[in-house]
């Protein structure tokens, strides 16, 4: 399991735990980082740039990530 996919799962878990609107929150993170979360899977290669962008967007929208 790659780091990107792990991040996606973490985001999904936070959304679930926080009872947030899943599609809206995911949509905002996607638009913020420019990565379509739906297309991140366990085989997605861990590019440093993509990881950084996703982490920054998640932190911005979900708080202390």
């Amino acid at each position: 399991m790659g780091e990107l996919y792990r991040l996606r799962r973490k985001i999904e878990q936070i959304i679930k735990d926080g009872n947030l609107d899943e599609h809206q929150t995911k949509g905002k993170i996607t638009l913020e980082c420019g990565l379509l979360l739906a297309l991140i899977n366990e085989n997605t290669p861990d590019e440093v740039n993509a990881l950084r962008k996703l982490k920054t967007a998640a932190e911005k929208l979900l708080g202390n990530f």
Binding site: Q24, T25, G27, T30
Partner: peptide
């Protein structure tokens, strides 16, 4: 605007 956010967030039915 809201639809665009939801679609990229994985809601393909809106």
């Amino acid at each position: 605007n809201q639809t665009a956010i939801r679609v990229v967030g994985g809601d393909y039915n809106t």
